[in-house]
Amino acid sequence: MSASQPLLDVRNVETHYGKIIALRGVDLTVNEGEIVTLIGANGAGKSTLMMTICGSPQASSGSIFYDGEDITRLPTHLIMRKSIAQSPEGRRIFPRMSVLENLIMGAETAGNKDVEESLKKAYDLFPRLKERRNQRGGTLSGGEQQMLAIARALMSKPRLLLLDEPSLGLAPLIVKQIFDAIRDLNRTDGLTVFLVEQNAYHALKLAHRGYVMVNGKITMSGTGKELLARDDVKAAYLEGGGH
């Protein structure tokens, strides 16, 4: 693979829910080792793009390449076995499984031989999970569930981590803890991160590059700094932000 080839390459993707169109020709790339963020208002189609990358729902037109391979028409479970992992919107913790079992589920099909080591890493990243390892997922607090969702995604030792609104509904202190963890993972392990956020200020500060989505289309892109400096971005996404 050439070094210039992006790890994730989304080309002119359209996605429909029945007759309703949710993505109207999205182009976007994520290079190896980058943190890329996608910001946009509620209902813009960010989660839809996240899920379309994972094949659920599948794109109705356009194509998605991962590591040079066309994955547009692959079933979800096969896409997710290709070192892609997602911490989805709403966290989707298995409520009647223990924290430990939730984590093990993350490594189940990845062919990850060293589950113990991955577990240790997960507990190092979020020590709180270790304390709670035998507690049922459904009884965790929102912040703990978010940590678990991220840790579970990391259990498969992914190259690309898709994170959908990890800060949603969490106290600022926990948001900071989670964003710090993402930065660390990127710096020390070279993990590539595609981050969807409504919390635009933090996301753009963290990310190398960012995209803005409006009504199913990418309307702006640039480095995090560039986007943060733009007046239209400020007006639309950072009002009252900047905390």
Binding site: P75, H77, R81, P88, M97, T109
Partner: peptide, 17 residues
């Protein structure tokens, strides 16, 4: 059990639902 609790999430973890 994972499919029982959340089929979509199970598939996102590579489970063949």
């Amino acid at each position: 059990r994972s499919c029982e609790q959340d089929r979509k999430m199970a598939s996102l973890l590579g489970i063949n639902v």
